[in-house]
Design a protein around this nucleic acid. Structure first.
Lengths: 200, 200
DNA sequence: TAATTGTTTGACAAAATTGTTAAACAAAGG
DNA sequence: CCTTTGTTTAACAATTTTGTCAAACAATTA
């Protein structure tokens, strides 16, 4: 978004995002991407120099987009529970668009480079994270959620949200559920999560 | 295991498992695998014909091993909670050995072939699954766990176990935790999971 | 219209990876 | 000792994928 972003460049990027993170085809070749976008393969190199740079660019963009939405300061004051609800909503919406974004991250953590870039955000978010943890402790003391290490609460939260979406095809199969049934399950998901996180 | 399994063959397989599923380097070449095993690259082809066949073989083996341990009938009678505890223990142990096995599955579901093979197990497990779901419902009625769609309970269970292990490097970073601290967190993990699943 | 700039293309080169083959080697049995 | 069988190796071939380049093309601007 820094400058103009020719239509073709944008088209290639969007196509790549779709192939990589919606369809999960991480090993797609430049040829396949170019074909899917309906452009000459050389253009991929013209705009992004190399396949890896293209990948990195779209990955960072997708991830940044997600973080931004997630961290966006909500309008009015929200209760703790409302904040959690919003967190769930945003995350689930994103995971529905790019189901393979997180699983790529999981499967490629070892590379490490990706996370270094992500870390740029860190300073900004560090204090907000701290505030969030403190808020969790307050809630525990107030008795709205069970007492435990606040980190465990965070792990619970993201696990319950992300896993069923990232692992959706696996879960569908191993639970012998059809597409429809799983969708219905996801619709109820938010409430199911809230039910186990909060004492009620 | 069908026949003899020469030492070299076994060595290559074990090395491949480690590279693929412990280190998560799914794109490792035959050369890298051979190097890591300290054998000539041609041997990989001699024993497994092709890279893909090697991959499939070790994947199926790893997965089968896991399923077997998970489904193994426990000795005496266990209470529902004890069964869940055992489930957590087995899964966490396995995920510690091969943290990338599940995430590979997640990231490559679209291929679909893998799961077809896994499906062989299905008939055996189908009825046990049903029994498990019924047991969950009984527990809900008995009031030991919150009322919800039993499938949601299953999703909660596997999410809470698997995600923090599969996403470990990501979580370590985004929560700014050191290796030590995260390990400690995992030690407490079982109790944290039980705490949210059961009413107490 | 000529010139400049940016875009697109096909042809080509380079690199990386896989797969095959024939020959060397070693162990075991006759 | 010779033969057979299974194992290991190096050299080679084939394929796949990436990356480069010069020329064609289009749009805009002088």
């Amino acid at each position: 978004m820094s400058t103009k972003d020719s239509a073709t460049e944008e088209l290639i990027k969007e196509t790549a995002k779709k192939i990589f993170f919606s369809e999960g085809r991480f090993n797609a070749t430049t040829q396949e991407i170019a074909d899917a976008a309906g452009v000459n393969r050389t253009l991929v190199h013209y705009y992004f120099r190399s396949r890896d740079l293209l990948f990195e660019k779209v990955w960072l963009e997708g991830h940044a987009e997600f973080k931004e939405k997630l961290m966006e300061e909500p309008k009015g004051d929200l209760s703790f529970k409302q904040k959690i609800e919003r967190f769930i909503d945003v995350w689930m919406a994103h995971a529905q668009k790019y189901p393979y974004l997180d699983s790529y991250l999981a499967a490629n953590m070892h590379a490490g480079e990706l996370l270094d870039n992500v870390a740029k955000f860190r300073d900004d978010h560090e204090q907000r994270k701290k505030a969030f943890l403190q808020e969790i402790e307050r809630e525990m003391k107030a008795g709205t959620i069970p007492e435990m290490d606040p980190m465990q609460f965070v792990l619970n939260l993201v696990s319950l949200i992300s896993y069923p979406l990232a692992m959706r095809p696996l879960m569908e199969r191993s639970l012998s559920l059809g597409k429809k049934k799983y969708e219905a399950l996801m619709k109820e998901r938010k409430q199911a999560i809230l039910k186990v996180l909060f004492k009620d």
